[in-house]
Amino acid sequence: MTTELFDDWVERFETLEVALNQLDAATGDGDHGATMLKGLRAVQLSPEQPAKAFRKAAGGASGSLFSLVIGALDSVMRGRQSLPEALSTAASRITQMGQAVAGDKTMLDALLPAATATTVTDAVTAARAGCLATQAMSARRGRARYVEGAGVGCIDAGATSVAELLEVFEKHWQEDS
């Protein structure tokens, strides 16, 4: 059930809020965890479509960009799209809106590898690996690009959130069985 997924997303991000804020603080304004949680709580409680509820409640670039990931996973849950289809569509729209590409140290560095995986488990593994790879990258988009050293040495908070959303999603998703 999608509502259980939403509950678990909220629960996971409640435990991650401070850590995500800290990851974000290294290169930005330190609110990424709070923003994700605000959006996910709206997904859990609002009668609106999950993506729209997230976008309106979270605000900021994260609200618009992550709403596409939320919408993609929601549509997979509802059987409207396959995971690779849904994630690829989300990734291309995020690329267009955010003007970012692979290697820019953004959420896309977790999302793009995940979109090429054929199973949910592989997608989670790919997202995790992509997320860790952001540690060595220098930011070319987002606030991190303006920081001394462009964030090299820090894992990107947005990429981390992509991996976490997927990992919780995996628990609720039964592979075609």
Partner: peptide, 12 residues
């Protein structure tokens, strides 16, 4: 007016 340090949503 968005939240603190956060751009308002496109909807707003």
């Amino acid at each position: 007016v968005g939240d603190v340090f956060t751009a308002p949503s496109p909807d707003l």
